[in-house]
């Protein structure tokens, strides 16, 4: 039952609806339903945030280490180096996301000019 398992125009939309819409709006609707019944500070919420953060971080690392498309043609060390440079610039600039993105992209771009 993968994304390409059924050769029909509607299958990708069903896949996106179930694995995407249902899996996200379920939590939003639950949030409205629960209202003020759970606290932002509870340990359960801390655990939830830890797992969600780690999961997204895992996706990000895979996008950098095992990329596809145009990024796959770039050197691994350059991608990792650009990521680290952008992240350090973000911290140095007082946690400004835009600075991190610009420095990371600039490092990648300069690297591609030097090692095409």
């Amino acid at each position: 039952m993968t994304f390409t398992a059924i050769d029909a125009w509607w299958w990708p939309y069903v896949f996106i609806l179930v694995a995407g819409w249902l899996a996200t709006d379920f939590w939003r609707f639950l949030g409205v339903y629960l209202g003020g019944r759970i606290s932002e500070e509870s340990e359960l919420i801390v655990l939830v945030r830890c797992i969600a953060t780690a999961l997204v971080a895992a996706v990000i690392a895979n996008l950098v280490i095992f990329p596809s498309g145009a990024l796959a043609g770039t050197p691994l060390l350059l991608r990792v180096g650009a990521g680290i440079a952008g992240f350090l610039a973000y911290l140095a600039a007082g946690k400004r996301v835009i600075v991190g993105i610009l420095v990371g992209e600039a490092t990648l771009g300069m690297g591609l000019l030097v090692f095409p």
């Binding site: 039952m1 896949f15 759970i38 932002e40 939830v48 969600a52 999961l55 997204v56």
Partner: peptide, 22 residues
Amino acid sequence: NGLPAAAFAVALSSVRLAPMVV
């Protein structure tokens, strides 16, 4: 990934939406 694994991964990454809505 199959549909159940994909849905499970997306759901795990989206649990944090509930406390934000709360």
